[in-house]
């Protein structure tokens, strides 16, 4: 900022040409810090992942580090956990995003009505949005745990058995994680969709009503088309976010029981943090990038389509 300061407050009124020349460089100076940080800490690392993926590289065993060519990728192709984690990742993303969208849309429609206590209700239902993955785990672990959870109180009342936890079985562990993540994720959709709902003109509804459109018809013909872009954008942002979401699964299930809830990023995180297998982890990271790149292209394509329709 010091450079800017000196440039803009240098004595007297600058001639127009001097001013224009300086102005030409101003935007570059202003975006330089952001551009540099992103280049060094986000763009460069992606390049270095390509490099590491060709090496046998383990921080705890530096004597074994060497160039291995495509060996890591060959290992990956034969790694059943890798393929299993891909399938689970898709399942996780589809179920989470789908349910969050449906409930988030319903919640936004309800909150968008005028009623007594609306501001308070809005603050309360949005609250889990700000809660971290680790804290979500803490809360839901207290609920799922056989000694502290609902199960114990239900068993006291004669429903179910003592000492059972939904996290113990692969099938129920999946839904246990889904519910915990829904608790935190629905507000995201509700907030974004509510923001868009509030920009719909009331006149549209009034004239539709004059034309004899019922409640469902108005929702179908006015509300949904208006929300289309918001839904496309928030769904894709959330899909990427849920793909990347490691905190909750790492702490709640750790990928278990028996790797049943292992997503690809979680697999990478466990290799990096627990096993320090950087070489193979980098190869898996590359696979993740390719999948996300496909996601991104779809995303940009859909956004473009949305803009065309609106114009």
């Amino acid at each position: 900022m010091a450079v800017l300061d000196a440039a803009t407050s240098a004595g007297g009124v600058p001639t127009r040409r001097r001013r224009a020349r300086r102005e030409r460089w101003t935007p570059y100076l202003l975006i330089a810090p952001a551009g540099l940080l992103v280049a060094v800490f986000l763009i460069y690392p992606i390049g270095s992942v390509v490099y590491y993926s060709l090496y046998d590289y383990n921080v705890t065993k530096p004597w074994g580090n060497r160039f291995v060519g495509l060996d890591n990728y060959v290992t990956m192709a034969g790694d059943s956990l890798f393929w299993q984690s891909l399938v689970f990742t898709a399942q996780w993303v589809v179920v989470e995003v789908g349910l969050q969208l449906v409930f988030g849309l319903a919640l936004a429609l309800v909150i968008n009505e005028t009623f007594v206590g609306r501001a308070m209700a809005r603050a309360l239902v949005f609250a889990p949005w700000a809660v971290s993955g680790v804290l979500t785990t803490t809360i839901w672990l207290l609920i799922y745990n056989p000694t502290t959870g609902f199960g114990r109180y239900l068993a006291d009342a004669g429903i179910g058995q003592y000492g059972t936890s939904p996290l113990a079985e692969p099938g129920s562990a999946f839904w246990a994680a889904v519910v915990a993540e829904l608790w935190r994720g629905i507000p995201f959709f509700a907030i974004l969709i509510l923001a868009d709902l509030q920009s719909i003109s009331r006149d549209l509804y009034e004239s539709a009503e004059v034309d004899g459109a019922g409640r469902l018809r108005r929702f179908w013909s006015i509300t949904l088309p208006h929300l289309r872009n918001a839904i496309v954008i928030s769904t894709l942002l959330r899909a990427v976010w849920e793909f990347n979401n490691v905190d909750l699964l790492y702490t709640l299930t750790g990928g278990g029981p028996g790797n049943a809830t292992m997503t690809l990023p979680l697999y990478v995180a466990r290799l990096a943090i627990d096993a320090k297998e950087f070489g193979y982890g980098s190869a898996l990271t590359m696979a993740g990038f390719v999948i996300l790149a496909l996601f991104s292209v779809t995303y940009l394509w859909l956004v473009r389509v949305g803009k065309d329709q609106n114009a």
Binding site: I46, V246, G281
Partner: peptide, 12 residues
């Protein structure tokens, strides 16, 4: 679109 988990290794 860059996942935090994928940046663990290069950032480390």
């Amino acid at each position: 679109f860059i996942p935090g988990a994928m940046m663990l290794i290069p950032l480390f």
